[in-house]
Write a protein that binds this DNA or RNA. Structure first.
Lengths: 215, 215, 215, 215
DNA sequence: GATGAATGAGACTTCATTCAT
DNA sequence: CATGAATGAAGTCTCATTCAT
């Protein structure tokens, strides 16, 4: 494992647990097993490191979302698939996603704009599913924006409370969330209410591999 | 407005926007209009100030939850009422609730334990509604714990994205969330699915007054 | 016990153990059982308190020295009597004497001059005995000043190492020091070397009462 | 002269004159000609600096005592040699020895224990001479412990009152103290009382070189 | 590539003291 | 007598960063 790879994961770990501001650059160096000055070979500054990590993480999320959407045939399927991917990503790549979610306020204006743009790009993919479902009458969405934000907050929250050591596996948590989301938008077909099991999605292991894939 | 009151609201403002770690005590003093040394008449230390604010906020939330629950006649009503109160509190007392939600990690073990205990006390009130609804068959709850956490994350999220200047008023946001929650648990009576308008709850203005009430 | 008396003894205790600089004015108030502001009814400032305590202590030492010298008939007796009194005072009024000995450097120039003058006044009484003994041939003093300072340092040192809980009582320590001093100056009469027991001094209980006397 | 060497001697100077507590680290940095932050490259904290200086000083004293004792043939010579060395060290390395003697109380328990152990190690060397002389009948020691402490206080005191600008040179002060000590223990051989000039010790210049030697 | 030394700015906190009540 | 509120100055220490080597 290279110095930079160690730095990367150490930084995510520390930023996610202590917070960006509370993480000293010396801690970072020590925990990464490199010297303080060497740290500056790998980054231009503390904020630059942060923004890089956030871009990588959000970029990955967007890529995965696109991969997932390429496999579906309807807004309802798209919404369910995004939910599963999102929950798995927030459980399996917890540190990354927490940092993105938490440390926007630690960025200067310029960097914040960059990250917000990426976040918007990601949320747009969710918006499209809700809009599509609403238009085709397969979802009931009281308010498009509020619903989208509510769903996202709910699914993102997994990163904060999920623990490997609990009774429930992450796959189940993801499945439950997909069902909650479908319930929330009252997803239906001609036959009536749709549950996750009614959909023709790739198996959860496929999602898991996608999300865990190192590159 | 007393020095302490000013300090209190300033601290909440700054902790919520910049973060606890990122807020210097000099800023705090300056923004409160008191001297740096005077600050220490009103607090024993930065963390003590934080924990005090968090206790007050959570204590208030618990009180309001109890007040609200005294007005309802069923788990479904209880859940809806809690949702409305929670969303209003997170929109109207945004700084408080954000600080509680965000800065747990800034506390030392002892203080963290205190706050976690309060938070658990609050969540227990939610758990009871879900358990009651599930037992009486008026709700479908795939997994009690996951559902509870998912709902809470969703409603808490309002504090992060709601803005007074948007199209939608907070009352509407609260109403929408209540409906989303009822949809999520598939709330029903003999007659079938229940929506918020089917319930016999106090008017939203009552909730608003409760949540805003200064004492 | 009056507030001031408590303050006095508390201050001596703290100044002697922690040091003047290391003793906070809040500690002082708390340990004296009075409020911070009330402290300033009893003193004009921290240094003023210190200098007052030092003056009292040195004044007392000078008085006792004069009392003692009024009882003797020769320089040798005078030296022995001063030694006994000095050792008893440094053992029984330890805090006072330690503060005087230790905290000269904490005084501003003006106050320091006052205390140094008192100290000189006290040491002059010792000098007179050594000079008298040397002149009359009852002592051998290699160098008057060095001898005086050496003896004083030796006797003053008792305040630092003597403990009530040790095997030896303070009376014995004082006696031993008197003998060491007589040996050091090779005190003698026509008959030869003189030891403490050869002298016609008041009993040690008389010294002890003098030193302990509250007024 | 390296930054650390300057810091070292500056710290000794300031700690000895103002006292440890009264010496601010800003003063320390300024007087050492380095920046406040650079100070912390050379020390872990103020107390750590103090304890390091004390350890060095006491270690040196112990080494010199051992060197000196290797040159003597009897307890009486040992006692005289220790006295000369001790007085020279306290006159020539005044700041070090004063700090050791004065600032024990400024140390926390752990550090204090370390320094007290070293001090005990040094005093043990004195104790051995007195015990040896007493056993062989070449000294009269009323009470072994009291005598030891009294002698040490006397000799240590030199650091407080000796000044280069006085009439007497330090060599003479050391010699006088050795004679006082011999008088105090009534050192003798078959022929009778022994004075310093009767002993076969290295010349005082040898002691002086030993004590001044930089390494 | 890697590092130890160095630093200005700022962190949190306590200091002795004053003053209106 | 006694006090709570208030403060400027100073306390110790850490921050992210630079640079010569």
């Amino acid at each position: 494992m290279s110095s930079y790879a160690r730095l990367r994961s150490t930084a995510l770990e520390l930023f996610a647990s202590r917070g960006f501001q509370a993480t000293g650059i010396r801690e970072l160096a020590a925990a990464s097993g490199i010297s303080l000055a060497t740290l500056y070979h790998y980054m231009d500054g503390k904020e630059d490191l942060l923004v890089r990590l956030m871009r990588e993480s959000l970029g990955r999320l967007i890529d995965d979302a696109r991969t997932v959407l390429a496999k579906v045939n309807s807004p309802v399927e798209g919404l369910a698939a995004l939910t599963i991917m999102h929950v798995l990503a927030h459980g399996l790549r917890r540190t990354q996603t927490v940092v993105v979610d938490t440390e926007l306020r630690s960025l200067g204006k310029e960097n914040r704009d960059i990250i917000v743009a990426l976040r918007d790009e990601y949320e747009e993919l969710w918006r499209l599913q809700l809009a599509g479902g609403s238009a085709s009458g397969t979802m009931t969405v009281p308010d498009a924006r509020v619903t989208r934000l509510a769903l996202l907050e709910m699914c993102t929250g997994v990163a904060y409370w999920y623990s490997d050591t609990g009774e429930l596996g992450l796959d189940q948590v993801a499945t439950i969330h997909a069902d909650l989301v479908l319930a929330q938008v009252e997803a239906r077909q001609e036959q009536g209410r749709i549950r996750l099991t009614d959909l023709d999605l790739p198996p959860i292991t496929w999602f898991r591999e996608l999300v865990l894939c190192e590159e």
